[in-house]
């Protein structure tokens, strides 16, 4: 049985944690002052790919589109999934791309890797700096892979080349659903933040520890595994990438205005016991359903 062929799409993102993030006076992110790291969702996706490597044996390529410094995201991802290859798609031409144009680059890149014969492609749930989870499914679609989103755990039936995954679907205003799905390879899996690896034997866990150590060693020399591709090397159609290939534009950015008053508030002094007593009585009245407003 041959190893699975896996690609992981990751993203370099600003570190939004307090003590690291910095904002401009107009409320926008100060990107120059804010360090970038492997996005937290990308990290979960990398760990999910590592699971397949430990459990089934897999060859993993981690890919990202971004500026040259995005190679640090690849390194951090390699640390998590013991990647065999790191691919950076980097070209000025890609700048300013919306999700569709980004997906075009990623699709082209991944098709090139391993001659396009991927079994599983992983991505994070979304990026934390604005992208809202479109790039994954759009890349999946362009690749022609079945897209499985919000996956919280998965296993591969190597014999039948089928993935079984559990997905956590939340329907706003309704209950949440955990759905178990089956899909033939190749699939594109967007990993839910609540993903948890489901190793179930001691030997798998020992293997996990062993590979993890290897990953650490490899990631120290990550440049050895790194390949950088520009637009020409990828062979993308310049009309489909970057700004020219983006259907959408950002037209304007403004402050969200204050909503207009819809209720007339009675102002009560919070230090007056009498007034608070009245508020308490009012609360019971409201809850008792006797009077509403």
């Amino acid at each position: 049985m041959s190893d699975l062929k896996i690609a992981v799409i990751v993203k370099l993102e600003p570190d939004f944690s307090e003590g690291n993030v910095s904002y401009n006076a107009d409320g926008t992110l100060n990107r120059a002052e804010t360090k970038s790291i492997l996005g937290p969702h990308s990290a979960v996706a990398s760990s999910a790919a590592f699971y397949a490597k430990v459990k089934y044996g897999a060859r993993i390529a981690v890919t990202t589109m971004g500026p040259p410094i995005a190679d640090t995201a690849l390194q951090q991802a390699q640390l998590l999934c013991d990647a065999d290859e790191l691919h950076l798609y980097s070209d000025r031409m890609f700048a300013g791309a919306d999700t569709l144009a980004t997906a075009e680059v990623l699709k082209t890149g991944i098709s090139k890797v391993e001659g396009g014969k991927m079994d599983i492609v992983f991505s994070g749930h979304r990026a934390s700096d604005g992208e809202t989870g479109q790039t994954g499914p759009q890349t999946a679609w362009k690749l022609g892979f079945t897209f499985l989103g919000n996956v919280i755990d998965y296993n591969v039936d190597m014999q039948n080349r089928v993935v079984r995954a559990r997905r956590m679907i939340s329907l706003q205003g309704f209950y949440d659903v955990i759905e178990e799905v089956e899909a033939p390879l190749p699939v594109f899996i967007a990993i839910d933040p609540s993903y948890k690896a489901s190793f179930n034997t001691v030997s798998q866990r020992l293997a996990f520890e062993k590979y993890q150590k290897e990953a650490k060693e490899r990631a120290q020399n990550y440049k050895q595994y790194l390949k950088i591709f520009n637009a020409q090397q990828l062979g993308v159609d310049p009309k489909l990438v970057g700004l020219p290939g983006s259907p959408t534009i950002v037209y304007k950015v403004e402050r969200i205005p204050k909503a207009k008053a819809s209720r007339k508030a009675e102002v009560v002094d919070g230090s007056s016991r009498d007034q608070i007593a009245k508020v308490a009585a009012k609360m019971y009245e409201v809850l008792g359903g006797m009077v509403i407003k």
Binding site: E18, G19, N20, V21, S22, Y23, N24, A25, G27, E33
Partner: peptide, 16 residues
């Protein structure tokens, strides 16, 4: 509000 937030993050970063 956004200025408060900006200052808070800026101070945190410098202190760190």
């Amino acid at each position: 509000k956004e200025e408060q937030l900006r200052v808070r993050f800026a101070v945190s970063k410098l202190v760190k």
